[in-house]
């Protein structure tokens, strides 16, 4: 009996997360292009990607630098002084609402939502 509960819950978690990922990936594009750059819980920049010229922003947190590049109305992390470089590998900020984060340097780049935080539900 306990065996069955365990197997069923494992399969359920797998299916739910797969569906959830599929929902996130196919979420419709937003027309809003307002982007926030958040460091250590504080909003440092608010950028309208449609109007913004190509430039680079350097953000320092705990003595480590992240260089954010805006090019052709797209935003990405071009250089990071952290051990894992996940934020660089994430590429450009995508339209489906998944933010770019750099956990070691507490940096986050995301589309601004009108209702505060991005809701986890889809």
């Amino acid at each position: 009996m306990k065996k069955r509960i365990l197997i069923i819950s494992c399969i359920a978690v797998f299916v739910i997360s797969a569906v959830w990922v599929a929902c996130l990936q196919t979420r419709p594009e937003k027309d809003m292009r307002l982007v926030e750059i958040i460091s250590d819980g504080k909003v440092l920049y608010e950028i309208d990607l449609e109007k913004e010229n190509d430039r680079e922003i350097t953000i320092t947190c705990n003595g480590r630098k992240n260089i954010i590049t805006i090019k052709d109305h797209e935003i990405y992390v071009s250089s990071a002084e952290c051990p894992d470089h996940t934020c660089m590998n994430m590429g450009k900020l995508s339209d489906n609402g998944v933010p770019i984060v750099c956990l070691p340097n507490k940096l986050m780049i995301r589309y601004k939502e009108s209702g505060g935080d991005i809701d986890a539900q889809t």
């Binding site: 494992c10 978690v13 797998f14 739910i16 997360s17 797969a18 959830w20 990922v21 996130l24 958040i38 250590d40 819980g41 609402g97 998944v98 933010p99 984060v101 956990l103 507490k106 986050m108 995301r110 935080d117 991005i118 986890a120």
Partner: peptide
């Protein structure tokens, strides 16, 4: 822990990706 460190709930968006890869 990420919610606590980043001081925002926005990182919960990653949870489904993490759970799928975790399975």
């Amino acid at each position: 822990a990420a919610v606590f460190v980043m001081k925002t709930t926005a990182v919960i968006v990653y949870l489904p990706y993490l759970m799928l890869s975790g399975c």
